[in-house]
Simulated scan of single mutants.
Amino acid sequence: MADKNQEQIVEEGGLEALLMLLGTSTNPTIHRVASGAIANLAMNDLNQVLIMSKGGAQLLSKIAFKTDDPQTLRMVAGAIANLCGNQKLHVMLKEDGGIKALFMMAQSGNSDVISQVARGMANFAKCESRGTIYGHRKGRSLLLEDVALTWLIANTTSTSASTRRHIELALCHLAQNEDNTQDFASSGALKELVRISCESSREDIRNLAKKTLKLNPIFRAEVQRV
């Protein structure tokens, strides 16, 4: 969807109409189509803020818990994954149930849905890492308050190449935050990071994992001890 078309849709009230359909319709087809349209709109920063301010994450999360249709879940997960790419919205996204909905959708068993969930984790972790590096946020990752590390570790050997790539990136970015060090050391995530640094099919991810391990003195000591 071109940016100009997106602007026109939003200006003419299309976003509000889509959100209203999510909240009021009981038609599964409408849920799927509306979620897909919102996912497209959620690729734009300004639209992301609008979607969140109008309760979009809450509505998407409710649909996620209502449906077992893989196509609808893929659209909903894609929309939330796009919202995960805006660090300013992370606290609200978590409070509105978006992260919980992602992990719930991961249990669907559908590879396309799981790939979108993994992309959401990678987007969230990358934005958090960037925010921490630039001093815009402090503290342990919001993802770690849920079951992120457990889920990421369990799915690092996914048969889907795109899911593996997103998970490897998520782990690398989460590891860049020193406040997550203890979680990595105690959960097995550090072991996965070491494996990624050697075995990832992508050279850029192997290099990112190696750099992350090298920069953290506790990681370095743990790796040398093993």
Rank of each mutant, 00 (worst) to 15 (best):
D183E: 12
V49L: 02
I99R: 06
H173V: 02
G85D: 13
S115N: 06
S111D: 13
L152D: 03
N5L: 11
N216L: 04
T29M: 12
K211V: 01
R137V: 13
R225C: 12
P70F: 13
H31L: 13
N180A: 10
K191T: 07
T132I: 10
R140P: 00
D68C: 06
A148Y: 13
P70D: 08
I133E: 15
A17H: 03
V49I: 14
G56F: 01
G97W: 11
Q71K: 12
R140D: 00
A170R: 05
N27M: 01
D45P: 00
L18T: 05
S160W: 00
E178L: 11
A79C: 09
S187N: 06
G13R: 01
E203N: 13
G13Q: 02
S111F: 10
A77L: 10
I63E: 05
M52K: 01
F103Y: 15
K4F: 05
G14Y: 00
S115P: 02
I99A: 07
M52N: 05
L144V: 07
Q176H: 01
V226L: 04
S111A: 15
K66P: 05
S200W: 08
M104H: 15
A189R: 10
A42E: 04
G56P: 06
S141Q: 03
N110I: 13
N123Q: 11
N110G: 07
V49G: 01
G23C: 06
N180M: 10
K214H: 14
V117Y: 07
P28Q: 07
G139V: 00
L41H: 01
K126N: 08
Q87M: 09
G120V: 01
G135L: 03
A209R: 09
K94G: 06
T212H: 04
A42S: 15
A37Q: 09
T159H: 07
C172W: 05
D204M: 11
A185M: 12
V76R: 03
L19C: 13
C172I: 02
I9K: 04
Q116L: 08
H173T: 04
S201D: 08
D204G: 02
L50S: 12
A175T: 09
N155A: 10
G188F: 07
M92S: 14
V33N: 04
A34E: 03
G55H: 09
G97L: 10
Q116V: 14
E199C: 07
T72I: 08
M104S: 14
A57P: 03
I99L: 12
K54H: 05
Q6V: 05
V226D: 14
I63G: 01
R130I: 15
S25L: 11
L213D: 07
K88W: 09
G13K: 04
Q8Y: 03
D204W: 07
T159Q: 14
E128W: 04
R220E: 14
S53T: 09
T26Y: 05
I30G: 11
H31P: 00
H173C: 05
V91P: 00
P70T: 01
A34N: 01
G14M: 01
G85I: 03
D3I: 08
E16L: 12
A64P: 03
E7I: 10
